[in-house]
């Protein structure tokens, strides 16, 4: 057990846990930030995607001890009022079916657009290919990213 200080969504959190605990479970079990989802635990589905210093990472495979002072953003902190252009586009396109994968999809998409505000269709495919949607909402995810991109210009 050790003590970890984490910078999440612009706030400081402190937690007592084992060094190998994945960030995903620290967020969910210890800090009550349940927007980040568990889907596979082995970095295959993207449900657990968060931003680490702006990069999309799989929190299920990131031990809390490896986070250090890097800034974490979760779906809860992507925008103050749920109106980040990607979130707004998700609503406008009505992307979600069951919705379970969508926090991860949004975090991957928003990291992509932060780096590349005008991705090509192929770049969108490549960036999103690590995120599984079992309901098959891929067409709308793609559409929403294109829409968000057009609004961010």
């Amino acid at each position: 057990m050790a003590n970890y200080k984490l910078q999440i969504n612009g706030r400081s959190y402190e937690t007592e846990t084992e060094a190998d605990t994945p960030l995903l479970w620290v967020l969910r079990d210890h800090l009550g930030l349940v927007g980040t989802k568990y889907g596979c635990g082995i970095a295959q589905c993207g449900a657990c995607t968060v931003h680490l210093n702006g990069n999309a990472v799989r929190s299920c495979s990131l031990p809390v001890s490896a986070v250090g002072t890097k800034k974490i953003t979760t779906i809860e902190g992507l925008s103050a009022h749920g109106d980040h252009p990607v979130q707004a586009a998700w609503h406008e396109v009505d992307v979600a079916q069951c919705g379970y994968c969508q926090a991860g999809q949004i975090m991957t998409a928003s990291a992509l657009l932060a780096k590349n505000p005008t991705p090509t269709a192929e770049q969108i495919d490549n960036a999103m290919n690590g995120n599984i949607c079992r309901c098959g909402t891929y067409h709308r995810i793609h559409e929403a990213i294109t829409l968000a991109s057009s609004k961010m210009k």
């Binding site: 349940v34 989802k37 009505d94």
Partner: peptide, 16 residues
Amino acid sequence: NVDNQEMITGKPLYGL
């Protein structure tokens, strides 16, 4: 979808 806002902001909705 009536739950859109909750889903896209990560509100606790699911059993997990």
